[in-house]
Each structure stands twice: as structure tokens, then as C-alpha cells.
Nucleic acid binder design. Structure first.
Lengths: 318, 318
DNA sequence: CCATTCAATGTAAACGATTACATCAATCGT
DNA sequence: ACGATTGATGTAATCGTTTACATTGAATGG
């Protein structure tokens, strides 16, 4: 339509120099009239890049992850990448599907928040493709990650309870297949031992999944123990909030009868009554940094793992 | 490596007949040894299908949408499609990026939950590509949708308050660029009028966005009105929960001093104190049906719009 | 006036798959 | 025994871009 070759059109589209003003105008005019849109598949096929980032999360329902995703998305878009958000539900089959998208070059790189599944597969994937781990990680494959010091954070959280005079502190933990669960438990135990408090196994409860109902159930179970705890450290705000619900429905007061502290600082944690003391994770930054890391990796640069700061947010539940 | 032509390899990969057992084995062996993975870009370029579904949501932080997504994802995967989840933030620029993915054939179809932006663009897109609207919709382009009867649901919610003897009922609405906001307001007004109650504009508050803090702010504003309302209908649980927080922090009791009803039945709504009366939307079904509709559309079948049932969930806040 | 240079543009190969059509050898029916 | 049929395989075009290289023509300098 503009009376030029495809090469010239390509030059115009990609803003190359060496195109005369006149032809450039003609081509741009034609593009407008035809509503022409370059086919991304063909472009990617030629360039062998897709400018797509895969993001694997265990569950989209957890506000902790959605905040991370906000960080990833903003940074990715800024750098000309779009994200492909995939929920694995910790299901190996789903994970396999998404790993194949990477092998197929449908996406240039992958950010993973759930490496509990299929360790070997992950390591093998990372050998050939750009991979970054966010929050959860596995040292094994030498895959870079961004996370916080979970053990220290848990230690400080429990220490805060101890400083308030608490001596009977229970732990509501999630599945210890997750690294954070193992680390936070270690922090919990360290704080207790340091204060000369015994570690009561009847005060440690493991939930299978994350969800308010699991927190409720955990609390229900802990309230049936002979020697009642007077404080709770839950490894997730979600669990803590469920537990609070159960405590209140038994007619007990927070923090007077039972104090409770959560983890993550999801926005809902400030809406409960009383408001929940918690450990803030820099979720947005974690996402944003993950995105920068994966893009650098895609570009062939070397990237270093990083451990970000957390912060204890003291509110009314302790 | 297998000593055959690319055509034969393609036949093996796609499980075509007309390949002898012997060659098939040779090729499969080679595929295994080389860790060969077909390049999806090239395949899509040729077939012009990607088996990818675009899902556009205004915000990933709203549990209402994440539940819909669960429905979409389960159904899509079952049918061999993957989803590309995109947050628009009601930002036209982002939307344009994602619309282009469709035009470029990077995805086969699109499910939209935020048609407030760029109406003409949407209608034009739908002329050429499979589009389904979920929850929000615009009749204009004759684009199929799945949603609920928002006006009726709001009407019933307010009627519930009236039956409880409430006569001073405020409305916390969100941005009326959203269809659901306009419809729920209509239901609110209809219920009031039917009961012979006046519509007080000072009792109607519009928030710019969704988020707990906006609900708080709305309530703060409503508590400054001379003629205090004694009941609140909020068009979203998120707003209702923020409002509850504000009510309680003023030392008022729910529902004794102020009753409140929300909308959506997000999981949080059962964790508040007191628990929140709300209107349940069949979010999972909405997602699941949207996915089925878009896949049928992609396959060239005709699809009908559908209006699903809602349900009033009476809990302790009223 | 001619050789040289340079900017603008065109030509055609490449990316990696799919597939219509061509080819070939083996088998079959009469 | 020979053409027809069939199944297995190969050849080459195709999808829509990008880009190395070739070509063109005008401007420049001696």
C-alpha cells in the first residue's frame, strides 16, 4: 500500500534510521489506514524472545502473593515485559505444564514462589533457562533468590511476646515442606530456649494448608490442650486471623487472655478486632526485585541473591 | 539424528497415523536423547492458535476476582488451555497492551471483567476476536456475558434491612463508572421508595476505589452527617469491612447502633467481628462458565449470555 | 566529466514448525 | 506379470517478521 518493501516497513516499525522522512510518512500513513499490527509470534520467532515472564504462585487467594505480584507487574511492564501468572496449587502436574511453557520458549524467564514441588525438575530447568526464586527457595540448584531472614524474624516475634511476660507460647505452623515454615519454627525454638522456656510439642500445631478455616481449626485444637497457652505465634496472618476468630468465639479476650502475633502484614490484618501484631514482609519490593533479577538474567547478566529486611509491627493483639 | 525428514518428526510429535512403528520409535528415541521440545511460537505462527486465554481483571488484590479466577483456571486447564492473567488497574494503557496480545494472536480469546475503559476499543476488538465479559458488561457490542442480577440483589439486601426495622439506611457505593455500582444503587433506591422512605443524598457516599481504607473513609464521612444513619449497605465486602472497622473504633456497636450489609461473600467476611451479612455471588461458577463460553466461542460455536443466581447470607452484622 | 561515497531502498534467507503434494516401494487383484 | 492401490516418507511452500547484503541513484571532489 505504501509502495515499499517489507524491509522498509520493518525499519519504520522499529524506528531504525536510514529511512527518508517521505517514505516513513507514507508507511506510517498506510499502517494507520490498515490498522496494521505486527504479529508478535512472527517477531518472537525471528528474535527468539517473547518478552513474557512466567510467575508461578501456589495460590492466588493469598494476599501475601498478590502484593508480590503487584511489585513484579509494575517493574515488568516498565521494562517492556508482560507477565503470565500461573497458579500451581502446589500441584506437580500443573507445574509441569508451566515448566513446559518455558522450555517451549513461550516465556523468557520464570519467577517461582513454590519450589516445594519437583526439586530435580526445577534444578534441571534452571540449567537451561532463567529462573528466579521469590520468598521460598532451594539452595541446591544455585538458583538466585530474593527473600527475608525468616528465622530471625520469627525469633524477634517470639521474643516480643516473651518481653511482654508471656511464658506459654504456642506455634501455629503451616506445612513444613515449605522452607519458611521450617525456618520460622527454628526461630520460635531459639527464642524459647534463649529465655529458658521449654519447647512443648503439644503447643505446636501444623496446618495442611493456608486459609482462615485452618487457623480456626488449629486454635480449636490448641484450646483443648490441658496446659493452655496464653500466647500464639502464627506463621501467617491468615492463620492468625482464623485463630483470633476462634478465640473470640469462645468468649476469651485478645490480648488479655491470649495474645497473638501473625506474619506477613496483609492489609486485612489491620481490619481485625483487635488489630493484629505481625511481622511485615516487604512484599512489593520482593516482587519488584524478583522482576529486575529475572530480566537481568534473561539479558545474560549475572545476578546475586538478596535477603531483604523485615519489620515487627506491634498492634493491639499483643 | 533419527535419519528422517522434518515432516516425519512433525507427524510423530502430533501423533499422526501413517508413521511406521519403527520410525516412530527411532524419532521418539532421538527426541528423548536431545531433550527436544517443539517451539510453540513457530507452531502457533503456522496454526495461528496459541491455546492461551487472556483474563483481564481490574485488580488482583480483590478476593472477589481471585475466586472467579479459580473457576476460570480449573475449567481452562481441563480443556487444554492456559491462562494469561493480566491486571489492568483500570488503566487504559495497560489495557491497550493486553488487547494487542489478542490482535497479535498471542492468545486465542479474552475474558474481561473491567469494560469501563475504552468502550469503542472493546467493541472493535470483539468484532474480530472472541471476547466474553464476566461480572461487568456492556450491552453495546453484543458481546456475551455472565453476571448476576445486581439490581435485584441490592434490592433484596436493602429490603432485609428494612424488614429488621431500619429506616435510616446509607449506601456506600463505589465508582459509578462500574455497571454494578449503578445497578446496585438502583436496587437500593427501589427498596427505599417501595417502603416509602426518602432518598437522602447525604447518606450516599461514593468511593473512588476498592480497599479497606476507602470503606473506613466513607464511614468516617457518614458519621459526620447531622442525621446519623443506623444501617449501611456497602456494595462490596471490602468497603463494608473498612466501614465496620471505623464504626467499632468509634465505640459504636454492630448491629445495635449501626447494622451493616456487604456484597460478594469474600472469605474475609466471615472472619470479622461480628460476622458480616452479605450477598453471595457464585464467583467460582462465574469463572468456570466464562471459561466454557470463551472456549466455545473460539471453536466457532454460538454462545448465550447468562445471569446467575445470588443469595442473601444473613450473619451477625444485621 | 568520471570515479567515489553514501544514504535509501530492495532482495532474499532465516527463524521452526505444519502440511499439501510428490515420490517410492511393497502388496494386491486379475 | 503388470497396472492399481496403499502406506510410509520426503520435498518444499508457508506463516510474518528481521536483517545481512546487494542495488540504486544522487551528491561530491578533483
Amino acid at each position: 500500500m505504501a509502495g515499499v518493501s517489507v524491509a522498509t516497513v520493518s525499519r519504520v516499525i522499529n524506528n531504525r534510521k536510514n529511512v527518508s522522512e517521505k517514505t516513513r510518512n507514507k508507511v506510517e500513513q498506510a499502517i494507520r489506514e490498515l490498522h496494521f499490527e505486527p504479529n508478535v509470534l512472527a517477531r518472537n520467532l525471528r528474535n527468539s524472545e517473547s518478552r513474557l515472564l512466567l510467575v508461578l504462585i501456589p495460590s492466588i487467594s493469598n494476599p501475601f502473593y498478590t502484593e508480590i505480584i503487584n511489585g513484579i507487574e509494575d517493574t515488568a511492564i516498565e521494562q517492556g515485559y508482560n507477565i503470565l501468572l500461573c497458579e500451581t496449587d502446589s500441584n506437580p502436574e500443573r507445574e509441569a505444564i508451566y515448566f513446559n511453557l518455558i522450555r517451549n520458549r513461550l516465556a523468557d524467564g520464570i519467577i517461582i514462589m513454590d519450589p516445594t514441588i519437583n526439586r530435580e525438575n526445577l534444578i534441571e530447568l534452571a540449567r537451561m533457562h532463567p529462573v528466579v526464586q521469590c520468598s521460598e527457595f532451594d539452595e541446591a540448584g544455585n538458583i538466585s533468590y530474593v527473600t527475608i531472614d525468616n528465622e530471625l524474624a520469627a525469633y524477634q516475634a517470639v521474643k516480643h511476646l516473651i518481653k511482654l511476660g508471656q511464658r506459654k507460647i504456642a506455634l501455629i505452623n503451616s506445612d513444613e515442606r515449605f522452607l519458611y515454615a521450617r525456618e520460622r519454627r527454628r526461630g520460635y525454638e531459639k527464642a524459647l530456649m534463649e529465655a529458658g522456656l521449654p519447647i512443648e510439642t503439644s503447643w505446636i500445631y501444623h496446618t495442611g494448608k493456608l486459609g482462615f478455616e485452618y487457623g480456626q481449626q488449629a486454635m480449636r485444637s490448641l484450646l483443648n490442650v490441658k496446659n493452655l497457652p496464653t500466647a500464639i505465634f502464627a506463621v501467617s496472618d491468615i492463620l492468625a486471623i482464623g485463630a483470633m476468630k476462634e478465640i473470640l468465639s469462645r468468649g476469651l479476650r485478645i490480648p488479655d487472655d491470649i495474645a497473638i502475633i501473625g506474619f506477613d502484614k496483609i492489609s486485612f490484618s489491620n481490619m481485625t478486632f483487635p488489630t493484629l501484631t505481625t511481622v511485615a514482609q516487604p512484599m512489593y519490593a520482593m516482587g519488584s526485585i524478583s522482576a529486575k533479577m529475572i530480566i537481568n538474567k534473561i539479558k545474560g547478566k549475572k545476578v546475586e541473591s538478596i535477603i531483604l529486611d523485615h519489620e515487627l509491627i506491634i498492634r493491639n493483639s499483643t
